[in-house]
Each structure stands twice: as C-alpha cells, then as structure tokens.
Write a protein that binds this DNA or RNA. Sequence first.
DNA 1: ATAATTATATTTGTAGGACAAATAAACAAC
DNA 2: GTTGTTTATTTGTCCTACAAATATAATTAT
Lengths: 236, 236
Amino acid sequence: MKASALGPMESLSMTDRVENILREYLMDNGFKPGDSLPNETEIAQKLNVSRNVVREALSRLRMLGLIESRTRRGMIMAQPDLFAGIEKVMSPSILSHDNQKDLFELRLILEMGIAEFLFARKTDKDLAELEAIVNKQKGLKSLSREDEIEFHGKLYEMTGNDTFRRFQTLLFPVFDHVFKEYLDKGVHMDLPNPVSHADLFEVLKNGTAGQFRNAMYVHLTPYFTTTLKNGGLSPS
Amino acid sequence: MKASALGPMESLSMTDRVENILREYLMDNGFKPGDSLPNETEIAQKLNVSRNVVREALSRLRMLGLIESRTRRGMIMAQPDLFAGIEKVMSPSILSHDNQKDLFELRLILEMGIAEFLFARKTDKDLAELEAIVNKQKGLKSLSREDEIEFHGKLYEMTGNDTFRRFQTLLFPVFDHVFKEYLDKGVHMDLPNPVSHADLFEVLKNGTAGQFRNAMYVHLTPYFTTTLKNGGLSPS
DNA sequence: ATAATTATATTTGTAGGACAAATAAACAAC
DNA sequence: GTTGTTTATTTGTCCTACAAATATAATTAT
C-alpha cells in the first residue's frame, strides 16, 4: 500500500471534515449570533460519525468564538473574535523567523498608513492626552519600550479603529523581539532621532496628513534601514 | 471525584484549561518544530483529566497548525500557520459590522503604508510585469474587481513580504463586501479616478516613495471619503 | 553474521456507553 | 397568580474498546 506515492494525500481526519462541514453549514444558512444549533447527538447521527468527533470539531469552533454552549440551552451561534486564533500563535518562540521578520515590517507598514485616519478623527481631547505623554517623555534621554508603546499606542487609539489597534498590540511583542535580535547582531541605533515624538505631535496638531506621513517615515527610518539593509528577503 | 483540584475554576471548561496548559507548556519549554510531545494518555494522567478532554484541546492546537500527529510516531510540534485561525472567521456573513468596517479601513491603511518597501525592493522584472497589467487595463472604460485585485495584488507581491500579501488577500472579500454596501446605500463613485493604475505605475517606476504615498492617497480618495464621511465610528 | 521477513508493541483515530451538572419547561401547591 | 417541585434535555466529562498504522524487536533465511 504505497499511498504516499500519490503526492499530498488529501487525508483529512473525520474531525477536520466535520469542522469544515459545520462551518459551511453555519455560513451557508446565514446563522446569526444567538441562533441555536442542533444538538451534538443529532449532528453526529446526521453526519454518521461519533459524538466524539463532533465534539472535537465543535471544540475548535468554540475556540474561535464562533459558537458558545450553555448546558441545557444547547449551543448558539456567537460573534467570533477575529483574533482569537491568531493571538494564540503570535509569539516569537513559536513563529518562524520569516514570519517574524514579515510581522516586523508589517508594523512599519501600518504605522506609515494611519495618517489620514488620525487627521480625520483626532479630537482636542486626544491631542491633549497625547501632549501629556509627549511632555512626560521630554526630560528623558532615551525612551524605554514602555514609552514607545504609550506614545504609539495612543496613536493607534486615535485612529478610531479598534481592530487595527488590537492588531498592532498583538504585533508589538514580535516586533520588539525581532528588533532586539538586530541589535544583538551589531546594528547600531544610537543616533538621536531627527523626528521625535514631540515633533510628530506638533505635525499632528498643526500640520497635514501628508506632512505627518513624511515625518513618520523619518521617525521610523532607523527601523526601515534595519530591515531593508539586513534581513530583507531578497526577491527573486 | 472532584477534578477541580487543578486550579481556580474560572468557569473555563476543562478543555479550555488543558488547551492553555499545553500551549504554555510548549512555549515555556522551547519546543521547536519536529520535537515530539508526550502521548495523549500520558498527558491525560499527568493532568488528571480524561483522554477526551486532552484530545479536544489537542484538536484545537492541531487546527492552528501548532502540532501534527501521525499514527504511531506520536505528535510532533509543527510550524503554525499564522492565519489558520483568522481565515476561518474572515467572512462577511460571520463578522460583526464593526469588524468589517474596521477591516475595510485596515486595507486602506496597509495600502498607504507599503511605499517604502516597494521602492526598496522593486525589480525590473516586477516593473515589467506590472506594466503589462497596466497596459492590459488601458483600453477598459471601467475596471472590474478582478482588475483591481490583479494590479494591487501585484503590488502586494512586490513588497517582498509574503505575510503581508496573504493578509491583504484575506482582507479583500470583506473589503469588497463593505464597499458594495456603501454603494447600495447610495454612495456614488462615478467620477474618473484622477490617479489611475497607470499613473501609480509611472510614479513607482520613476518617482520617489514620498510621491508614491501621495499618489496612492489620491488614488484611494474615493474609499477614504466613503469611510470617513459615512460609517466612521465616531470617537468618544 | 547479515539481510530480509515477520511478529509485537505502541499510539492516534474513531466509536459508543455512562453519568453528573445545569436548567428550561411542565406541573403542583398555596 | 405566584411559588416551589419534578422532569426532561443537553452539554461536559469519564470510561472502555478496537482499527489502522508503523517503529522496534524477534525470527528466519542466506
């Protein structure tokens, strides 16, 4: 029985198949949060598999936040958490090195892309809070990781896009880890940043989105040169 | 037998707890792809739970790509697929409306942020291929969804960041759905775009990253005004 | 002794049965 | 009509069993 000669044998387990079937069933039938699902034994009988298999599949959907189940009331459709799955593998000790470098860059991409939203949605209250952060950092010679997170995190918040904010927050540990790796490899970053947080704030308050994009690029230049000169996956 | 001797009963199911325990175990002990795990019965005994519970937890990790298992050889650590979880819920029929709007905007953010990487990594071959796409579209009066995907998809490819490319690809169906919704609501988008794909190509070939960012903004202006004038989650 | 073959043991995948806990629904009591 | 009790249902957990697959050990052939 040389089944392995046939290539990438489509050997999905029963659980895999039931998981797919259930997801398609929920989507194709327009299930909305709150709608109740058939019970486990019913599903098992309908699909001709054991309740164990059904439960393993349901367990996955439960992890994704797609369904919830309460004793007696049965299972109901839920509002899935977009990042429930990704946050469980978003760790430097788990991800491949390529993935990590890509995510390092992804943070830069995101940071460069938020200008329009900041200018469209900034409020006086936001600006005041951001100014407070900037003033607190004014005396310091060098900024800690927490300082960076506080300033840039406030920017994420000001985009008014909570999904973006959560995604950036997820990205940060990986970004930080990759950057430390660069530092360990001898990349030096001791030059004073020509565009400080205070400068960025000033542009955000009185400038334009275009000016902000350019200022942000200069502010991030050390990171850009780091990734573009070093690890950049050389394209074909 | 009170199995609750394992810790605080945070109303998490056994499966939830075992899942967390296993993930932490794998991370804290520096498991790398290929390393083999203890077998199911061993885990069950060690944690004082049934093999069923262990299997439901493992089933989740298997879905995330964190582990693989082959009969007899036992389970081994694997390289998790960063997007395995998220792609299963990335669907307009499942996500909340807020999530969808956020993702619509996220695509714009990403699109605005790639300029530096494009200019750092563009090759003559890439430019030639992009030019071919542009020329193919030159005769058309209006661009189809496929045309848009082809042009912008090529840009994603040219960033040299495969994770970014995959993420953008995942985003597209949601983006498309949200935009259609805007159109149905009467938002009009019939003006000819002042910056076409051909213009973007020209800037990418002969201009600078800064110019490209500005050109891209104008190119995307219809989408920006759509989201910023309509659904924007009004901040506090 | 070495190679080839066979047998054994181990581990995952699947099935099915049992029962506890929780609770919605039906029913009974006042 | 309200309150308390019983009942039925459904998930959560445990258990046992066995098939399939295969690495390892044992056996046989050369």
